[in-house]
Design a protein around this nucleic acid. Sequence first.
DNA 1: CAGTGGTCTAGACCACGGT
DNA 2: CCGTGGTCTAGACCACTGA
Lengths: 255, 255
Amino acid sequence: MSDLFTPAAFADPNSGPLYLQLHRRIAEAIAAGDLRPGDSLPSEREMAALTGLSRVTVRKGVEALVASGQLVQKRGSGTFVAPQVERLEQALSLLTSFTEDMQRRGMQVESRWLARGLHTPAPEEVMALGLGANDRVARLERVRSSDGVPLAIERASLPARLLPDPETVDASLYAVLEARGNRPVRAVQRISAANLGPKDADLLGVATGAAGLRIERLSYLPSGQVVEFTRSLYRGDAYDFAVELKLAPEAERTS
Amino acid sequence: MSDLFTPAAFADPNSGPLYLQLHRRIAEAIAAGDLRPGDSLPSEREMAALTGLSRVTVRKGVEALVASGQLVQKRGSGTFVAPQVERLEQALSLLTSFTEDMQRRGMQVESRWLARGLHTPAPEEVMALGLGANDRVARLERVRSSDGVPLAIERASLPARLLPDPETVDASLYAVLEARGNRPVRAVQRISAANLGPKDADLLGVATGAAGLRIERLSYLPSGQVVEFTRSLYRGDAYDFAVELKLAPEAERTS
DNA sequence: CAGTGGTCTAGACCACGGT
DNA sequence: CCGTGGTCTAGACCACTGA
């Protein structure tokens, strides 16, 4: 890895911006295994000196690698190749709870509560839950971690009628619902990707702008009543959702 | 929107870094509707002058908004609030083709080919497709657009035995497979989120670092033979995948 | 305490867009 | 042509880490 930063090829014919050249060099060194997880890079000032670039340019070159989770920077300490994050795979077509899911894998689950109580519903919640004018809403907002690593932010809203005492929810929301005979049997999810804002990124312990999976879920009782409206943000680098597909039947494809 | 940049509150008690304060101000103005899609912001130099910040700091404040697609910057022209991107919703549990899916919505579909031909397989492809030592692989790599807007990058690999003439694929891969009696009936997908690298971001017409949905798919024939190994990148801001969930049966939850 | 990343500045040149 | 965003520099101070 010694000559990674030897300036040489930074003699800029037309290989594009300097910070992109640096970005590419480091990314390739990681991909090739010349830089291994846990390895430390030279300090920004050193890299600047070695390459002949300014520190600002070095930072810009490193920036995208930090955002995408390939590098980790620690103030006062240094810049390191990110440790391998073991991706968790989760079946997307079964309605399971986070807690149950993790326990089945033998993993430790922790929840840090950000909010938990009864509130006046926001318009979005009124729509999603089909609330009336005077109904109230139970809100559960927490960071889900496994073995000390934060994995997801979960913001759940339920009609207060179905969960009048949100403070009693400890680990598994579904366990509480089940005890009250209100466990959902069906749900619809919408999945998309979004860059994490400063606040959410901080909660998940990743860099601002890192990619996250945004999942919106509506869960239903057998009666068709909506139980739960949940918006979650999963760390994009730590989660894989798996789905099984079947061929669309001809009948539906010709309409 | 006039006093958005009046410096006032940039008198830095301890409201955090200046670029984050600027970021927050703009994000809130967009959320509140004070800045509407298509509106133009002052030039970076103007914002710097108005706020009393340096241009570098202004750029840093704007950066994350651009990466997440809320702002669009055009060199030589200016900085604008991004037009509303109409999100496409797609059912994730049906095995449909991009082409058929879009045509059913009455949308124009274009493909720009990046590569199309027979190659010696990469190790990853050997594994996924279950190839032998001397098998070759058909690669189809293209950018999928609808109404002129690039939506996804699709990189498909198939055993050459099932698609000896990849050059004949025009719009729909599945149509060609069906003609040969090789249309898949089942598939498994894995979904995650990732920041787009400079190259892919450019192909999709978004900023480097924007969040993308990464989907890996393995499709099978009725015989169990793998037909297709496809890695796709969808624009995170333009796509919503929908899934319906059912309650996990007790039998499976207790193992 | 010395060294690290995090923030910020003032100024410069370039490539491109629209007039 | 002028104004825009895109790149780049040299230097500064801060908050934090680790010895």
